[in-house]
């Protein structure tokens, strides 16, 4: 039995909101209503890796259709912490898409990271954790978690690490990534501000002779401001993003959280 209509996971030629619409059918006559095990709860997340830190952020709105379920439902989680509040955790996971799948995925990864620690007596590396997450996602290849995940932490060299995933576990390490409802709004901004796309040294030439601005490691405070700007921009242009911004910052000292309100309209 096919749970997801194959075409529904593919880009549609019809204009639509970012939240997935019901399966459209061209069949004439009776329309049968079937249970769909998926929903889209909107929201956006992003991650940026720095030279000794990684920031993963997400808005705290959870919606279904035009309704706001709640103004505070975190999408960014500490993984492998010692207690309910996640103290002692070193790895951050952010999930957008279907919130129930997101939670299930978070709990699975969290328990696996804990099991790793109990069995081996040391914390899992971000690299290993990233591979483990891919395996979990792929284990549901034919009934996927409808979630786009990003994972971050500090790698074995002490450098900020960030991994991004598709629904079924394909992943890569990146410098920055925006995901979710407002990904298409935020990603170009990050391309320009983090990867310095289309930024040139003024007066360095004309046309193709223009020299690309050299990338330099970004300061943490600068990146925090970029994240805030990215979200305040997304809030203006996307109805599913808003209410609050949750930023988790991983450094060698652990994970710190910053919460800032966003517009609630």
């Amino acid at each position: 039995m096919a749970f997801i209509h194959p075409s529904s996971l593919l880009p549609s030629s019809n204009p639509s909101y970012s939240f997935r619409e019901g399966i459209k059918s061209s069949a004439p006559g009776i329309q049968e209503h079937r249970f769909s095990p998926y929903a889209d709860n909107g929201g956006s997340t992003l991650g940026i890796a720095g030279k000794d830190f990684t920031i993963i952020a997400g808005d705290t709105r959870q919606s279904s259709g035009y309704s706001i379920n709640t103004r505070y439902a975190p999408k960014v989680f500490r993984i492998g912490g010692d207690d309910d509040s996640g103290t002692g955790a070193k790895i951050i996971l952010a999930v957008t898409g279907f919130a129930a799948d997101g939670n299930a995925l978070k709990e699975r990864l969290d328990s696996m990271v804990k099991m790793y620690k109990y069995q081996h007596g040391k914390d899992i590396s971000v690299k290993a954790c990233a591979q483990r997450l891919a395996t979990i996602l792929y284990s549901k290849r034919f009934f996927p978690y409808y979630t786009q995940a990003i994972l971050g932490g500090i790698d074995e060299e002490g450098v900020g690490a960030l991994y991004s995933y598709d629904y079924v576990g394909s992943y890569e390490r990146e410098q920055c990534r925006a995901v979710g409802a407002a990904a298409s709004l935020i990603m170009p901004f990050l391309d320009n501000q983090v990867n310095l796309k289309n930024q040139y040294v003024p007066g360095s030439g004309v046309g193709h002779d223009l020299k690309a601005k050299a990338a330099e490691p970004l300061e943490q405070s600068h990146v925090e401001q970029l994240v805030r700007d990215a979200f305040s921009g997304a809030v203006e242009r996307h109805i599913e993003v808003g209410d609050g911004l949750q930023m988790l910052i991983a450094t060698k000292d652990g994970i710190r959280e910053i919460y800032t309100p966003l517009k609630r309209d």
Binding site: P37, Y38, A39, N41, Q62, S64, S67, N69, T70, R71, Y72, A73, F98, A99, A100, N103, A104
Partner: peptide, 18 residues
């Protein structure tokens, strides 16, 4: 029914949510 969870100072289901 999907297992979606959320919490808020006030809540309403069904028509009540609108």
């Amino acid at each position: 029914l999907l297992g979606t969870t959320f919490s808020s100072p006030t809540l309403a289901t069904g028509y009540g949510s609108y």
